[in-house]
Design a protein around this nucleic acid. Structure first.
Length: 270
DNA sequence: ACGCAGGCCTGGGCGC
DNA sequence: TGCGCCCAGGCCTGCG
């Protein structure tokens, strides 16, 4: 369930099991992901995992021969299990570790990715064009303002464009626009500087708050059903069509933008 | 460069 | 119980 906070939670959950461990082998049960899992992934076998990191919603696990580059797509998750635990349906790839554990990629819809990158991973085409991290210092209203200049697309779609800023998915785009009081349909290039300031603040706040809640999942990460709806209750507009806006009581509306559902309050967001 | 549509997949929930 | 339909936390690719 990969919004950025989930990906971050996943990283924090698997890293202690992975970093410093040696990958004994890579088990590819089904190579048909977004792109076919390449043969090169087997090059990490026999090598230690040197580090785990995240760029946007991509996960990177470095070894001496190269870096494993993972994406969880819409339905992907990583689970740490004992190697003897039977595979579930849709457990497509597993890293078998010298600790006797498996890190398994589970992904019913197979929109995820499991790739191998030799050399500087940041130079990979999937990563090299990405925008700044939303929680980093490089993501400011000044930067956003400059990048949105002249763009006619709706602000909601712009903010979900990973080339402008990474990690803002459908839920948090809706939530942040609500918090900032900006209509999702507003032309991106015409949102005023002060309102962009509010939007940047809202994005940082909502992502940071959600990551903090992800910490609860972190503790239970090895558990079989580690998927509580812990931030569902904090959502103000997402998934709440027809329910009262928490600020003004007007019914929350749902529209479709770029084939994705957008939830917003027509009274609070202008 | 930008904006948009299409496409990739499976599964759950709903109405009939 | 079964079937068809709609919907789902993403994002790349190709076209105009």
């Amino acid at each position: 369930m990969p919004e950025l906070p989930e990906v971050e939670t996943t990283l924090r959950g698997v890293s202690p099991h992975l970093v410093g461990r040696t990958i004994e082998r890579v088990i590819v049960r089904d190579a048909r992901l977004r792109w076919p899992v390449p043969q090169e992934v087997h090059r990490v076998a026999g090598h230690a995992v040197l580090s785990g990191s995240r760029r946007g919603k991509y996960l990177l696990f470095a070894t001496a021969p190269g870096t494993l580059l993972l994406h969880l797509g819409m339905s992907g998750s990583l689970r740490v299990t004992d190697a003897a635990t039977p595979f579930r349906t849709h457990d497509h790839v597993a890293l078998e570790l010298d600790s006797g554990l498996h890190v398994r990629l589970h992904d019913p819809r197979r929109f995820g990715a499991f790739l191998f990158v030799e050399g500087e991973a940041g130079a990979h085409p999937l990563l090299s064009e990405l925008g700044p991290e939303p929680l980093g210092e490089a993501f400011t209203s000044a930067v956003l303002h400059a990048r949105l200049k002249g763009r006619t697309a709706p602000i909601k779609q712009a903010v979900m464009d990973s080339h402008l800023v990474v990690g803002v998915g459908n839920i948090y785009a809706c939530e942040a626009l609500f918090m900032a009081g900006i209509s999702p349909a507003r032309e991106a290039g015409k949102v005023s500087r002060p309102r962009l300031e509010a939007l940047v603040t809202a994005i940082k706040e909502v992502l940071a708050a959600s990551i903090e809640m992800g910490g609860t999942t972190l503790r239970d990460f090895l558990r079989e059903n580690g998927e509580p709806g812990y931030f569902k209750q904090t959502l103000r507009v997402y998934g709440r069509e027809g329910l009262p806006c928490p600020a003004c009581g007007a019914p929350v509306r749902r529209v479709v933008q770029g084939a994705r559902s957008t939830f917003f309050c027509p009274r609070c967001q202008r």
